[in-house]
């Protein structure tokens, strides 16, 4: 079987298209690369959607945490503490069994116990909490002079937030937020190890990598393949976020611009 046939059979296997049976013996390198790559579709799906939706809740949480209203402040603080203070792994498990229990209450919740929605919600809340803390930190370090200048120009309320506070906050938070994005993509690998079932063996990249490692007793091929895929994703994120960073910093002189710095990514 040529590699092109393998690609045609397994390229979209993680979405349920193509060959149903996973390879069971005589594993070729091509099969491993294709299937693990196919699994990456899910990692990218979870990462992109959670990041996009989480961004808005994160902004809200940061503004809430920085607000003077005690109710909003406590709410945001509690939200951030719960999702940053507990392991994502346990959050996944809890959410999954919660959704399973809710399924018994009403059929509305049927979709929630599937990974594509349930895990996405957990990742969305989780990344919102982590980014919320980053944005809060940035909000606290918006230069005083900028705000005074805004006052002098007669900007207040929403206009001041929209035109001065928010862009500055984003500019300050962006390097850290980039790391958070990378970190989130890594966290997507936990989904299929935490309760959420991979129906008909439609899993993510790590699911297939560990499938091959278990079948071949040889971790030295699938995990490096997985690693290469993730390094590619990481480089992609760095490039994309670097462009945004350039735009956010475009009004500043060269040496004052925030440098994108790649920090080691830890698990959550």
């Amino acid at each position: 079987m040529s590699c092109w046939e393998t690609l045609a059979d397994y390229g979209l296997r993680s979405l349920g298209y193509g060959e149903r049976l996973l390879p069971r013996s005589d594993f070729t390198l091509c099969q491993q690369v294709v299937l693990i790559g196919s699994g990456m579709i899910w990692n990218i799906y979870f990462g992109v959607l959670a990041l996009l939706s989480g961004f808005f809740l994160a902004t809200a949480a940061a503004v809430g945490k920085a607000s003077t209203n005690p109710v909003l402040q406590r709410l945001s603080n509690g939200f951030i503490f719960v999702f940053r203070g507990s392991p994502l792994f346990i959050q996944f498990f809890f959410a999954y069994f919660l959704f399973v229990a809710l399924k018994g209450v009403s059929p509305v919740f049927d979709a929630f116990s599937a990974a594509w929605l349930g895990a996405l919600i957990v990742l969305f809340l989780n990344t919102a909490a982590y980014s919320g803390e980053i944005f809060y930190g940035a909000l606290q370090s918006v230069p005083k002079g900028d705000m005074e200048a805004a006052d002098a120009y007669g900007l207040a309320g929403w206009a001041r937030f929209r035109r001065i506070t928010w862009p500055t906050m984003l500019r300050l938070a962006w390097p850290a937020y980039t790391n958070e994005a990378i970190f989130l993509f890594h966290a997507t690998t936990l989904v299929y190890f935490s309760g959420f079932p991979a129906l008909q063996q439609r899993g993510d990249a790590l699911y297939y990598a560990s499938y091959f490692a278990d079948k071949t007793f040889n971790p030295f091929v699938p995990y490096p393949i997985l690693a290469i895929y993730f390094i590619l994703v990481t480089l992609g994120i760095l490039a994309l976020f670097g462009l945004v960073n350039r735009r956010l910093n475009r009004h500043l002189p060269q040496e004052q611009r925030a440098r994108m710095k790649f920090r080691p990514n830890l698990l959550r």
Binding site: H186, A187, L190, A213, P219, Y223, A227, T234, N265, L266
Partner: peptide, 16 residues
């Protein structure tokens, strides 16, 4: 250890 999901290391190191 940078740049790769750590959970992959956990699965990898135990067998390795």
């Amino acid at each position: 250890v940078r740049g790769v999901p750590d959970i992959a290391y956990f699965l990898f190191f135990v067998i390795a």
